[in-house]
Simulated scan of single mutants.
Amino acid sequence: MSERFYLYDETVEAAVRFVSFAGENRRFDLALVETDRFYGKWLVLDLQSNRFAILGNDDLAEPGYLERTYELKIEEADELRAFLRECLS
């Protein structure tokens, strides 16, 4: 058996916020992970759909990004976007 080749193997400190909220169109259960690993962006996990993304305010401003990433309807994505704008700044 050959040796495993690591590209990196690091342990970092992280702040994790678990939040659940009900919007007009659906409920969101999220884990928001902040580290210095993602260059000022956050790792945002949707615990219901098992989808995640590394997000910053620039990503929130990109049309259709949340809809595609989390497979959301426009109205659902608008609710998530509004919440994340408050949290990620």
Score class of each variant (00 low, 15 high):
R37S: 04
A31L: 13
G64T: 05
F18Y: 12
M1H: 06
E76D: 08
F38D: 04
G56Y: 14
L7T: 02
R51S: 03
F21Y: 06
E34Q: 13
G23K: 04
R37A: 04
R68C: 08
L55T: 00
D29W: 09
S89D: 12
E67A: 02
E86D: 07
F38V: 01
V12E: 07
I54E: 05
V12H: 03
F52H: 12
E67V: 09
L72P: 00
A22I: 11
P63C: 07
E62C: 10
Q48S: 12
R4M: 12
W42G: 00
A31W: 08
F18S: 02
E62P: 02
L60T: 00
A82G: 07
R85N: 04
L66G: 01
E62R: 14
G64E: 14
P63H: 07
R27L: 12
V12L: 14
F28P: 01
S2P: 12
T11M: 14
L60P: 02
G23S: 03
Y8V: 13
L55G: 01
R27N: 02
L47H: 04
L66Y: 05
F38E: 05
D36F: 08
A22P: 02
N50W: 15
Y65G: 01
L32P: 01
F5H: 11
L45N: 05
V19A: 03
L72A: 01
A53P: 07
V44E: 00
I74C: 04
R81H: 10
T35R: 10
R4S: 06
T35F: 06
E71R: 14
A22S: 09
N57V: 09
L55P: 01
